Amino acid sequence: MTWLADHWPAPSLLAVCALRVPSLFELPLGMLAYLTIVNWLDPSLARRLTGSAVLALMSASYTITFGLIEWAMHTTYAKEDLVLRAISGVLTVLALRRLRPSGAGAPRDALELLAFAASTAALGYLILALYDSVLLYSMGKVGQHVPGAIVAGIVLAASRVAARRLRGRDEVAPAGAGFDTLTGGLSWWLALFLVPALAIRYELGFGSALFAAAAGLLVIGAATAAALFQVYGRLPVPGRATSARHWLLGLVVAGVAGALAAAVGLAVPATHSEIRLLWAAALFILTATLVTAAWDRRSPVVAVPVS
């Protein structure tokens, strides 16, 4: 950058780049990444979100959060950056509304869900690496992220190819109620976490970690309750009580195993808390998926759609 400034015909013009890149591009980068993950898991949900007022609420929530942090870390550029963030908030919504999410549907079995989890973890690492270097003006950190970014890029490409091929299979065994709950819970969580996500994230560093954890657990609890209610209503009526007991016991086993795996992820040393959260989430989904699939296979309880 020093070399570029020394050889640029009018180096003063480069000043517009300083402390402006995050103001313009942080919001669209974050929102597009989130909606991409939603589309991988539940294309119908992605289509509903991009065509509804939720997209504007998401932009407003993120823009206000970014603005408050910008003001708390006050610089001489703060007022200008707030204006740029407001402009970015409006333009981002207008641009994302033009998206036409595509996809055939939610994962149908454990292999498809694992491909989704691998894709999400890889994309999450790439976003965090980009944020930690380019968007935070810490270009000296680029080198330390290159090996991980290469691995994440390979995993992302491979998992998306695998997801496409798995989706092309003609026959897939019906998913059990446990697996149906897991995918439904993830879909509900993505929908409910959409608007408060950034506020909860910044509460970790600029507010109370306990409050952030409570807010995150509230979203998880609401998503879990919605998924349980949804799947219970689709259990076959004959023998519903017996089926429900087996289904719920399997969920408890999967939840405990997933929580233990997530605890290992949280213990991994990392510069940023997001990296540990990413590891924890990936290990939870991996473990819960494997346990749920095994439990469903051992004694299948299939939830049937309500006509």
Results as ranks from 00 to 15, higher is better:
Arg160Phe: 11
Arg48Leu: 04
Arg201Gln: 11
Leu41Lys: 02
Arg164Val: 05
Leu113Thr: 03
Thr287Asn: 03
Gly258Lys: 01
Tyr62Cys: 06
Gly205Thr: 15
Gln230Arg: 15
Arg245Cys: 04
Gly176Arg: 02
Ser12Pro: 12
Thr65Ala: 10
Ala294Trp: 14
Ala5Thr: 09
Glu171Leu: 12
Ala177His: 09
Ala293Tyr: 14
Val252His: 08
Ala104Trp: 10
Val93Pro: 08
Ala122Cys: 10
Ser187Cys: 11
Pro107Thr: 07
Ala152Gly: 05
Ser208Cys: 13
Thr292Phe: 13
Ala254Trp: 02
Ser299His: 15
Asp109Val: 09
Phe193Val: 00
Ala72Asn: 15
Val90Cys: 03
Gly176Ile: 01
Arg234Thr: 07
Pro101Cys: 10
Ala149Glu: 02
Ala163Asp: 01
Ala56Val: 08
Ala282Thr: 14
Ser133Pro: 10
Ala86Leu: 13
Pro305Gly: 05
Gly207Glu: 04
Leu32Ile: 02
Ala222Ser: 13
Ala293Cys: 12
Ser12Glu: 11
Ala267Leu: 07
Leu278Ala: 07
Thr181Val: 09
Gln144Cys: 02
Arg85His: 06
Ser159His: 05
Leu278Gln: 08
Trp279Ile: 00
Arg108Tyr: 01
Val142His: 07
Ser133Phe: 01
Phe25Glu: 08
Leu27Met: 03
Pro300Phe: 08
Leu19Pro: 03
Val134Trp: 05
Ala118Asp: 08
Leu32Gln: 04
Ile64His: 01
Val142Glu: 05
Leu290Arg: 10
Ala86Ser: 15
Ala199Leu: 14
Leu266Ser: 00
Arg85Asp: 05
Ala226Glu: 03
Arg100Ile: 02
Ala227Leu: 05
Ala209His: 15
Val16Ala: 08
Thr50Val: 12
Val93Lys: 02
Ile37Phe: 04
Gly178Ser: 03
Arg47Asn: 04
Ala162Lys: 02
Ile69Trp: 14
Val231Pro: 11
Phe25Ser: 01
Arg160Val: 06
Gly207Gln: 07
Thr183Ser: 07
Ala259Leu: 12
Gly30Phe: 06
Ala197Gln: 13
Val252Leu: 08
Gly221Val: 11
Thr181Trp: 15
Pro28Asn: 11
Leu82Gly: 15
Leu123Met: 03
Pro300Gly: 01
Thr292Cys: 14
Val151Arg: 03
Gly207His: 13
Tyr34Ile: 01
Tyr62Ala: 09
Phe179Lys: 00
Val268Phe: 10
Leu283Cys: 08
Gly51Ala: 08
Ala244Gly: 04
Leu192Ala: 13
Ser159Arg: 06
Ile37Pro: 06
Asp81Met: 15
